[in-house]
Design a protein around this nucleic acid. Structure first.
Lengths: 316, 316
DNA sequence: CCTTTCACG
DNA sequence: CGTGCAAGG
């Protein structure tokens, strides 16, 4: 993973030029005038040389150790291709005891990494921020007083010069929506309040697996998933009320209105092949920096997890 | 598994001519004048055409579904090569719900199969007898009255014209020998009594994973395993008292005195490569038919489990 | 080491 | 379907 040994290897065409799932129609009957997202045609040209900017990527890896075992995947290639400054991970499924070994595999340059692991359930959840820029400060959990009440390793915040970067893995509402009320009344509200506190000093970038497809355009089968975790009306309204209405901008949607861009395809029904996907992973940014977003993009061709990575280029 | 589709395929040299683990010395300092078993040189010539006989094989497969997934293994090839009449399996790790699907994969000719599955712990233990001869009767468990008290699917008996075939997976005494007293006082004694009852009507063949290396010759490191499950003095004495002293003959040992022939190599320390093995799998037969044994043999070159199959050719 | 179940997604 | 755990051997 970001391995030093492979630092001189070239980018493998096997990994980087896959089949193009985003060309598959999102639904048998595409509604209205929606178009499918295509990163090859819909990404803006690179920023002019010398423009000050930061590149952040975020990825729910669904088990980091399993991802690193795949020969088909080299995070080094990802780093070389995307040249990101900061990488946010969710569902690392690491235990604290694994972290030191994983750190050893990071390539040179990404020397600052911050790992939050579940202490209540081993090998569950887990988030991380890996950066080549040293953050001014790092916080685990949402408790501004400093004591960490996030027992499931779901949130890490890194403070940089001009923004806070919050990386979170929002709790899934679960089978039978058993955890729906916790998700909304505890998690979403607490997170929303935490963001408002941080925004008092600096703009915020909220990223990660927010575990909600906000609108019908964000899911392949809206009608059939009205009571599915991640697309209940409760979660969608909470997403609006706690994040968008509080002044965070959904950067992908702002840049690509009417564009279908999924970031998750369940393993269960071979969803990636048929593009039966969901958009669950986001970059939300404070309104004050929304105009600085140069590109909010999706990399649907990166395999190795049921989610794909997404990226944000922000002019500084 | 014994698949119909492959019925016309030839025996793959990949599977059948492996490296020859039996040529590896059993121990750095082989004791006395023990020799390593070599199936290529130590098996008698085939019986003359037309000699009435039965071929029985037995194998602890350590999870039948996993074995069947291996491309390296085709039970058809085993059937073609060994031409067995009856196959006894242990540690199938099947649930009753799996059995019908597994039966469909049996090749033509082996039309009679009898499956015992653990009902107390799913995916644990489990035995089966697969036969091309239809048995006169079949019994699950050791209760002669017929009701089955074997909750762990450890024993199936098939009655044939001239013998009973008992296939068993003897309980492991466990880490810390937690189950040693159950193993000896309950299992071995009950099994011994059951055999004596059956012998009143017909001779008995007892086969399977008896989970005991009887003598020092039957284990690679006797000194280091005196308190290991399967080589405790209690289990070894029980093996002698309950089976050998009661008139059962250890057919491999009778045919091959002073020969090291292991049937199990733990996965944990790559034991198969270094031949750090145990002889845990047996054919014990009633004295009255011991002279009919033509060959009691081991097939150490068959992979796919931590045990290898063993076979018995019995003249009728 | 390897295969099972189980929880979770 | 796939990851990671835990028990069993």
């Amino acid at each position: 993973f970001l391995s030093k040994e492979e630092a001189s290897s070239t980018i493998s065409s096997e990994v980087l030029s896959q089949s193009e799932p985003w060309t598959v129609l999102a639904h048998k009957k595409p509604q209205k005038d929606w178009k499918a997202y295509n990163p090859k045609t819909m990404r803006p040209p690179s920023l002019p040389e010398g423009t000050k900017h930061v590149k952040v990527m975020t990825w729910n890896v669904n088990g980091l150790r399993a991802l690193l075992k795949l020969e088909s995947f080299s995070a080094l290639q990802l780093a070389q291709r995307e040249n990101f400054d900061v990488l946010c991970l969710q569902e690392t499924k690491l235990q604290m005891k694994d972290v030191e070994d994983i750190k050893k595999t990071l390539i040179d340059g990404y020397d600052h990494s911050f790992w939050s692991c579940s202490v209540s359930k081993l090998g569950y959840s887990g988030t991380a921020i890996i950066s080549r820029i040293k953050p001014l400060s790092v916080r685990y959990g949402t408790d501004l007083s400093g004591s960490d009440h996030d027992m499931e390793g779901r949130i890490v915040t890194a403070e940089f010069d001009s923004f806070y970067l919050i990386n979170t893995y929002v709790p899934n509402s679960g089978d039978g929506l058993k955890r729906l009320s916790y998700r909304i009344e505890e998690w979403d509200r607490t997170l929303s309040n935490y963001i408002k506190e941080l925004e008092k000093s600096k703009p915020v970038i909220l990223t990660g697996d927010l575990n909600c497809a906000h609108e019908e355009i964000d899911i392949f089968n809206p009608a059939g998933n009205k009571r599915s975790a991640g697309f209940t009306i409760e979660e969608r309204q909470s997403f609006g009320a706690n994040f968008l209405d509080k002044g965070l901008v959904d950067t992908f949607r702002k840049q690509h209105p009417g564009v279908i861009g999924y970031t998750y395809w369940g393993y269960r029904h071979g969803g990636r092949k048929t593009n039966k996907g969901w958009r669950l992973d986001y970059f939300l940014v404070s309104e004050s920096i929304a105009a600085n977003v140069h590109d909010s993009y999706i990399l649907p061709d990166i395999n190795g997890s049921d989610h794909c990575p997404i990226g944000l280029t922000l002019k500084l």
